[in-house]
């Protein structure tokens, strides 16, 4: 999967075709993620941040903000208040 092509939401969603993932594919793709094809590991097309070991109750945007708060795709979509609210949960994780 060429990261440069992954700016497109549909392209990201298509990478999950046939992937068994504990999180809804559309929600992952909306949050900037595409499947690496290895297990449940995903990457953000913009910041390159990767995440795996997903739990069913997790929210892709929340996890994005928790681990990669500097991603400007995240900031442009969710805003600084959202990122702060995740980052200032206590204690973290």
């Amino acid at each position: 999967n060429d990261p440069a092509l992954m700016q497109n939401f549909e392209a990201r969603r298509a990478t999950f075709a046939g992937v068994r993932h504990p999180i809804d594919h559309e929600r992952l793709a909306r949050a900037g993620f595409y499947s690496t094809g290895r297990g449940d590991a995903v990457l953000c097309f913009h910041c390159g941040g990767g995440l795996n070991n997903w739990q069913p109750e997790e929210d892709p945007w929340v996890e994005h903000a928790k681990h990669y708060p500097g991603c400007s795709f995240l900031l442009a979509n969710k805003g600084p208040e959202f990122v702060n609210s995740i980052q200032l949960q206590r204690p973290q994780h």
Binding site: G49, N53, W54, Q55, E58, E63
Partner: peptide, 8 residues
Amino acid sequence: EPDARPTL
């Protein structure tokens, strides 16, 4: 932690 883990 059981969370989604960063791959970096």
